[in-house]
Design a protein around this nucleic acid. Structure first.
Length: 560
RNA sequence: UGGGGUAUCGCCAAGUGGUAAGGCAUCGGUUUUUGGUACCGACAUUCCCAGGUUCGAAUCCUGGUACCCCAGCCA
């Protein structure tokens, strides 16, 4: 993937840091990837991971992995595990131990006390409904809470009782005292702490009050010495608040928040909520279903870390919200696999071919390269015999003009083997084709026939030697470019009923020992990956990662 | 209607006053025992719109327009 360097799209944050360094402003670059463990990572997170870890890599700094775990109700250990696995699989290593915002709960609590003592935070007893009322609207200012002017002493006592578990969930909250009339709603006395009598996956039952995202994030960055706190555009409105905490608390360091546009991909959804719904409703087989845009799903589908990283380089990092064409993703994986995937032949929809002129001169063991452009990868052996399977798509009884494949009286090259001619089509009473009787030209193994050109090449497999395999043909999960564009229509209405078509295929024998997660190009068909969970000797399962480009399909489409 | 953003080819995206990079997609062609790959070529007189400044504007000014985000005790 040497192309990555020459085609990498711009990244305004990288430019920013380059400028800072040129001016001697930046010391060591420290970034962080801060997922909440409430779901699996998806392709959009891959963009963020590549950005944060990539920046640390490029500038010789550190990138931390920090779980933003301030909401125990939604978080689970399974997600913590999967996230770490995904980051590592992508090829990144975080600096030091895995971190958790919950590691800082003590410090955060102390800082809350600090704000209270300074008269900058208070305990509020408004109900959620009242609080909404008091907050005002987008166009109207809010009103101060009746609890806003409690004394620090009273607030200290109340907050201590909250922490001690004297109140039920939701009874009271700690709020910052900022400005109820602020045009930016985030500044209208935001909530710092809420009561949640919930078991936390890291801190157990130590706490029954949990800090909010806003009160946690920037301070965690400060504690860790993060220099560049990179997040998505929707947090831009939170930046004044992020900075307010840093300015009003005795933090050891001043991180800077920078926002970039999150990734949108057409024909897919990238919202944890929607992905979770697909999983929970059993529409897909789990978070790592090969149709899911999760990192685990893409992996199982046959995407490689290199392809995903290349993709992230390709799309660039900007502040404008766009929708990336899924063809970019396809392009990335094809580029990688074209260079690196082993070649094999596999017949998806068999039709029998009988060679009528087999004799002792015809080779029964044919060697073929594992990769035609990379001889160093070695060879495989293809058994050849009088009974073969070819793909039904590669034969037409009444072909159009430009059809280069097999047809009555027409010649075609069997990939890696001989040129054959179809002499006769044998059918049953109903007219279904039973077999194609063909004769081969013995002089065409490894060389072109004399005096004529055979343009077509088709793949095949020896019937007696073929190994059966389950081949899962995956396609987009949705039939429309923007499944969630219409607020009136449920995105599930756009599910592609053919997103998974499973077929019983016949593979060349070298595939019998296919190891899980091995990538192949089934020649002329597409790229496939041995399923990482299911594929084993005796039960082969291959997932179609992406098809080969198919210009014949285009020609046909135009004709139709 | 308040605040915060973004607008350059079908999509992503450079460009920061000197006369529109690149990638994806698309369309031609060459090579080819993968209708794949590779290679060659085509593809924005125009930068959301309208005025203005300037010898010169995608870039500066003015006024519009469109789209995205914000009224969780989610992140």
């Amino acid at each position: 993937m040497s192309k990555a360097e020459t085609t990498a799209a711009p990244n305004f944050i990288r430019n920013l840091i380059t400028d800072e360094r040129a001016q001697g402003q930046t010391t060591k670059v420290v970034t962080r990837f801060p997922p909440e463990p409430n779901g699996y990572l998806h392709i959009g997170h891959a963009k963020s991971i590549c950005l944060n870890f990539g920046l640390a890599e490029q500038f010789g700094g550190d990138c931390h992995l920090r779980f933003d775990d301030t909401n125990p109700a939604k978080e689970e250990q399974e997600y913590i595990d999967s996230i770490q696995e995904d980051v590592r699989w992508l090829g990144f290593q975080w600096a030091g131990e895995v971190r958790y915002a919950s590691n800082y709960f003590d410090q955060l609590y102390q800082w809350a006390l600090h704000l209270i003592r300074e008269g900058k935070a208070y305990v509020c007893e408004l109900t959620p409904e009242q609080m909404r009322e008091y907050r005002g609207t987008l166009t109207e200012p809010g009103r101060p809470s009746p609890f806003r002017d409690r004394t620090p002493a009273e607030n200290l006592a109340e907050f201590e009782r909250m922490r001690a578990g004297e109140y039920p969930d939701g009874a009271k909250v700690l709020r910052a005292k900022i400005d109820m009339a602020a045009a930016n709603i985030n500044l209208r006395d935001p909530i710092l702490y809420r009561i949640r009598h919930a078991h936390h996956h890291q801190t157990g039952d130590l706490w029954c009050i949990y800090p909010s995202y806003d009160f946690t994030h920037g301070q965690s960055d400060a504690i860790e010495g993060v220099t560049h706190s990179i997040c998505t555009l929707e947090f831009e409105d939170h930046r004044p608040l992020y900075e307010w905490f840093l300015a009003n608390l005795p933090v050891p360091h001043q991180p800077k928040q920078t926002e970039f546009a999150r990734l949108n991909l057409n024909y897919t959804v990238t919202s944890k909520r929607k992905l979770k719904l697909l999983v929970d409703q059993g529409i897909v087989e789990g978070w790592d279903d090969p149709r899911m845009p999760t990192i685990a799903g893409l992996r199982r589908r046959g995407y490689t870390p290199a392809a995903l990283r290349h993709f992230c380089d390709l799309i660039g990092v900007t502040r404008s919200n766009g929708v990336v064409d899924i063809n970019m993703l396809y392009h990335s994986i094809r580029t990688d696999l074209e260079e690196n995937a082993q070649r094999a032949m596999c017949v998806l929809n068999p039709i029998k071919v009988v060679i009528t002129n087999m004799d002792a001169d015809v080779a029964t063991q044919i060697k073929a390269p594992v990769h035609p452009a990379r001889p160093e990868l070695g060879e495989r052996v293809l058994p050849f015999s009088a009974e073969l399977y070819i793909d039904a798509e590669d034969f037409m009884e009444d072909p159009p003009k430009k059809y280069f494949r097999l047809a009555p009286g027409q010649e075609v090259r069997l990939r890696n083997a001989y040129v054959i001619r179809c002499d006769q089509v044998i059918k049953d009473e109903q007219g279904h084709i039973l077999e194609l009787q063909c004769s081969l030209d013995k002089e065409t193994l490894g060389k072109n026939p004399e005096g004529r050109k055979v343009k077509g090449v088709i793949h095949w497999v020896s019937a007696a030697h073929a190994v059966p395999a389950e081949v899962r043909l995956y396609d987009n999960l949705f039939t429309v470019e923007a499944p969630d564009a219409d607020k009136e229509v449920d995105f599930l209405a756009h599910l592609n009923p053919d997103s998974l078509v499973s077929v019983q295929a016949y593979c060349e024998p070298s595939l019998a020992q296919a190891q899980p997660e091995t990538h192949y190009q089934f020649e002329r068909v597409g790229y496939f990956c041995a399923d990482r969970h299911l594929c084993q000797e005796g039960r082969l399962v291959f997932n179609r990662t992406v098809g080969l480009k198919d210009s014949w399909a285009k020609i046909q489409k135009k004709g139709a």
